[in-house]
Computed example of a mutant assay.
Amino acid sequence: MADKDVEQTNERGYIPGPWWAGLGTWGAVALIVFGGLAGAWVFFRLPGTPEEPASAYYGVSKVIAIGLATVGCTLLGRRRARAAAIKETNEWDGERT
């Protein structure tokens, strides 16, 4: 097996994880909105809608679910960071008095 066949994890620019990992809050909200618009597109059977709408709804639901999970994790992470910062501030106040 040649070196080019082996995955190099220490290369510059290599980011392990799924494509949605770096979306952030606004990217996730945009993904949810895009999924909702795509769902409306399928519902009204506008041009480009597949013959079997179940497959389109499945794809739309995956996009919306990824957006919801990403925005939930992002907001939960922010909440935990704020709680840790408040706890650290309270510990500093307790040591000074």
Rank of each mutant, 00 (worst) to 15 (best):
A38L: 14
E7A: 11
A83M: 09
C73Y: 06
R79D: 03
W19N: 07
V71D: 00
A81K: 14
G36A: 06
G24I: 06
P50A: 14
F44H: 10
E51Y: 06
A83C: 04
G22R: 13
P53A: 13
V63G: 00
V6T: 07
P18K: 13
E52G: 02
G72F: 00
R79V: 07
Q8F: 00
L37R: 05
A21G: 10
G59S: 12
V33L: 11
V6R: 14
E11H: 11
A83Q: 15
G27Y: 02
Y57E: 03
G39I: 02
G22I: 02
G27N: 05
Y58G: 12
G77D: 09
A56Y: 08
A69E: 03
L76D: 06
I32L: 06
Y58S: 14
G22M: 04
W19R: 10
V29T: 08
A85V: 07
S55G: 11
W26E: 15
G59P: 04
I86N: 13
A38P: 00
K87V: 11
T25V: 15
L46W: 15
A28Q: 03
W19S: 10
P50Y: 13
V60W: 03
T70D: 00
W26R: 13
L76I: 12
R78P: 00
I86M: 08
C73I: 11
P18Q: 14
I32A: 05
P50V: 10
L23W: 13
I86E: 15
K4T: 06
V63Q: 02
I64A: 01
G17R: 08
P53S: 14
R78S: 09
A85H: 08
Q8W: 01
L76Y: 05
P47T: 02
I32F: 03
T25P: 00
L37S: 09
G36H: 01
W20G: 01
G36W: 00
A69K: 04
F43N: 12
R80C: 03
A54C: 02
G39D: 02
G48F: 06
V60I: 15
F44T: 15
A69D: 09
P18N: 13
Y14H: 14
V29C: 04
I15M: 07
L75H: 02
G13R: 11
W20R: 02
C73H: 07
V63S: 03
K62H: 11
Y14L: 11
L37Q: 09
A65G: 07
Q8M: 05
E11R: 15
A30H: 10
G17Y: 01
G13W: 04
A28D: 07
G35Y: 01
S61N: 13
K4M: 11
P50L: 15
I64G: 00
V63R: 01
I64R: 01
A30M: 13
F34S: 05
L23I: 07
G36T: 02
G13M: 09
A56W: 06
P53M: 12
A40G: 09
I86H: 07
E88L: 11
L46D: 09
